[in-house]
Each structure stands twice: as structure tokens, then as C-alpha cells.
Design a binder for these strands. Sequence first.
DNA 1: TTGCCAGAACACTTGAAGCA
DNA 2: TGCTTCAAGTGTTCTGGCAA
Length: 232
Amino acid sequence: MNRTDRLYAIVEELRASAPRRRTARELARRYEVSVRTIERDIAALQQAGVPIYADVGRRGGYTIDKAMTLPPLNFTPAEAVAVAVALGRFEGAPFAEASRSALAKIVGAMPERDAAAARELAGRVRLMRRADAEPARIPPPIEQAVLARRVLRIRYEDRDGVTTEREVEPIVVTGGPFGWYLIGWCRLREDTRVFRLDRIRHAVLTGLPAPARRYEDSVSDLPGHLALVPAL
DNA sequence: TTGCCAGAACACTTGAAGCA
DNA sequence: TGCTTCAAGTGTTCTGGCAA
């Protein structure tokens, strides 16, 4: 095992056994090197910013701050396509750009062979969409309002063509086969209202903080055959 | 880059000594 | 007898130097 492999292995060993301490002697036996070599490796990792801590004394040893590390994220081609399918639900939806960049990062981090396999597999998986459906364009203020929990000022045109100005406290954004909707507390109606995004003619972020409202406490009159599923 | 050596520092355990 | 204190011993990491 070369040094680079050993450095990775030590981090993984400490991460897997955390919070139990591992002594330099244990690690030396494990990787068939001297204790001094392990100590140098630990020092190199610490210098590189890996949160490894040494406890001296009889029951001492090395531990790693598990909260500061992540396990290696290795996606199989099928897992990558599953993520892509899930993100596909967001096409033309809020956070669409973030979805695209997240997917690009995942594929970019995969070995080229797996990435190619994922692309090939993705070519055999298609999402169905209504042909006449215009991809919704979500105004950035709505994304921001949901993200930062801020009050929105919108100009909304209802089904009868009547336009009203409203201040809305966003609760959730939801999407489905019929389009995308903003569910929020309407200060004009003093009640929870569902707004079709394609009927929102204008939206401005007010900067006013919106009170945290739980979706379950705010919406109770969905048709029985409909259920809103959290995005994550 | 790795192995070996030596000494320092630290924390814990153990056992002896002192005391009520 | 039981409790407390303290020194010695032990096990560990840390650091520096040297050689292969």
C-alpha cells in the first residue's frame, strides 16, 4: 500500500471506529508500518486540515471528529440515474438551476467509466410530460421567498381573470401533472391559499420575515386522492 | 519516504504510607 | 478497618535527529 492509499485508509479507519480511539500501535500493525510512520501520517493529515485529535495517556489514541467528515460518496450508475430521475421532477420548477448543477457535480465526481454507464442508462429512461405543457418559469423572487422565508408581494390573476395585489407568506411550493403551485398564507384573505405559478403576473420580495408555518397545520382541504410528498 | 532511537510530557493505575 | 494522599510504574503521543 502506498502512502496516499494509507492516508485515505487511516481517515476511513478512524471515521468508522469513531468515537473509539485507535492507538498508533494498532494502526501500525494494521497497515504493517512503524508507529513512527503512522505518527507522521497523522501529522500530515492534521496539517491538511483533517480533524484528527490525539489523546495522550494510558487510554489515549487518535480520534477523528466524525461531524467534520463525510463518507466517500460513490454512486453506482443506477443510483446516479435515480437521482437524475428525481431531479427531473424539478424541470422548469423552483431550484431547477440548482438541480442541474447538483447533478453535474454528482456525475463529475464519478469515475469516467461509471459516468458513461450512467449516461447510457439514462438514455434508456425517459420521463413523460404533457406535450402541451409549457415548462413553468418560476420567478426568482418566489424561489428566494421560499428559501429565505420572506413575505412575497404578488399580482395574481384568478380563474375569472380578476387581478389582485396580495402579500403572501410562503409555506410550500408544490408541483404535479397540472403545474406548479405556491401554497401560502394570504394576508388579503387572511387564510391559506393556493396560487398557480403561471397566474402570478408579478412577484416582488418584500424582505419582511414570514412566520414559520407548518404545511400540515395550514392545509387540510386537499382532495382525498391527492397527497403532497416532501421533496427530500 | 520510511524506520529506528531517545527523551519529554501527559494521564492513568497501582500500591504503600499515613491518619482518623 | 476504611479512607485519603502520594510516589512509582506504565502506556501513550510528541518531537527531533539520523540513516537507508
